[in-house]
Write a protein that binds this DNA or RNA. Structure first.
Lengths: 237, 237
DNA sequence: GGGACGCGTTTGTGATCACATTACTGCGGC
DNA sequence: GCCGCAGTAATGTGATCACAAACGCGTCCC
């Protein structure tokens, strides 16, 4: 079969093993990944900023290897980019690319919302409660003019809703998009400031409460559209 | 700012450089990645098969490091999976997951097709020619009962069409989905055999030729639906 | 005869080092 | 004063080694 696929054929090499992942401890590369990922999602990393493997490794107190692993994973998700020469940087998506990403969100997220509504049909109460809490945090961030907090809370709201859909493959696609838009949206909200955003989340919560998947899907679509419009507006500045 | 992001702050470490990527030579990890990726896309790797870093490295005659890089990248794209203990295997998507993947394709691919039609409006001839060639290869594979060839040709057809849309972000999402469905679809077509597939590609080519994006989008949607139906049917066996 | 335990082996992870290339600094020339 | 050039510092890639955990198989006990 070649290619070392083996379907149960051992390798041949020599040395040995994993490095002590006792208990619930997560691997070092995972920890680095989660840290970088969170920063990107909430836009704490400036688009265009550059990272170095040694820098990341040192600041998280690991060796270069896990840092590399984490960075490459994010590059694969397009959350980070490599220059032709291999330098790592936080991508600055072109306007056209942002438009693509929002187009994809607009297609995928209403579907996820619809599935979430259907899946949580009998047992909406806990979900509603969790979403309400996150919407409160979101309102607070808006009131405080906290762009980073807003992006984080907004992401959490959507993530919580879609988690109810129990659709891991779709969720992975959407999360990859969020990672790509995160830094830019943080910047956008920073520019637009505390400007009043129309609240589609309330509509969404009502629809969910009323067991109305279609209205929920529409609300999410409008929410995404609003983000797209803001991004386009900011890009024009 | 911490986290070694630096927006132009050097790391602090020590050693030195890249390993000779002269000319058009591609890095070793990229070569490994492309090889594995092609195998997955055309379904040459059995779902459920296991790989080892040392095995992959040895069969492509590189060290463990690039093999690791490539495998992790594919894991990030969900084209490979890791067991909780870290073993690498070709994922065997559950039926529910396959359904999700096809749902996403159904949403994204018609949009890509529509964009491709719009973007190639003035200059369809070369695109049509390229697509026609690939459709011929596809028909040949069907006639020969070559499941792997069919999957490869079908992917190439769609990839060529969508490339005209010049939408890299959307394209990346769709390619990630293809990587996930590849091994399974190869198996599905292997099971269903040379059974007659309705040819939506001809319809698609006509629509493209007639400058009718909507009909093209519908044809692509039908094509995806047919694949989904087949996958569902095969899963029931 | 079947199931559970134990041991050797394989495996992924993390660390460190070497290297070729790329980016950056300061200096010189025009 | 500004552009271009050299030298140096820094970066990603690849290789190798060490380690601890998981797998797999054989054996023993019931």
């Amino acid at each position: 079969m070649a290619l070392g696929t083996t379907l149960t054929t051992p390798g041949q090499g020599g040395a040995i093993g994993t490095q002590g992942v006792a208990e619930g401890r997560q691997p070092a590369n995972e920890q680095v990944y989660q840290t970088l990922r969170a920063r990107l999602l909430e836009g704490a990393l400036e688009p265009g900023a550059s990272l170095t493997l040694r820098g990341v490794a040192a600041s998280l107190d690991v060796s270069m290897t896990p840092a590399r692993e984490a960075v490459r994973k994010l590059v694969a998700e397009r959350a980070l980019a490599l220059t032709p020469s291999g330098r790592i940087l936080v991508p600055l998506p072109a306007a056209a690319e942002l438009e693509e990403l929002f187009a994809a969100r607009r297609l995928l997220e209403p579907e996820l919302a619809r599935r979430a509504a259907l899946a949580s049909r009998d047992r909406v109460a806990p979900l509603l409660k969790a979403l309400q809490l996150q919407d409160d945090a979101l309102e607070a961030a808006i009131a405080a003019g906290d762009a980073q907090g807003y992006v984080r809370a907004n992401t959490a709201f959507h993530a919580t809703l879609y988690a109810a859909a129990a659709a891991p493959a779709l969720m992975a696609l959407v999360e990859s998009i969020w990672l790509q838009t995160g830094p830019t949206m943080r910047r956008v909200y920073g520019m637009i400031g505390t400007r009043a955003l129309q609240d589609f989340h309330e509509t969404a919560l009502s629809a969910l409460s009323d067991d109305d998947p279609t209205t929920l899907a529409h609300a999410i679509r409008d929410d995404v559209d609003q983000g797209a419009a803001l991004a386009a507006e900011a890009a024009a500045l």
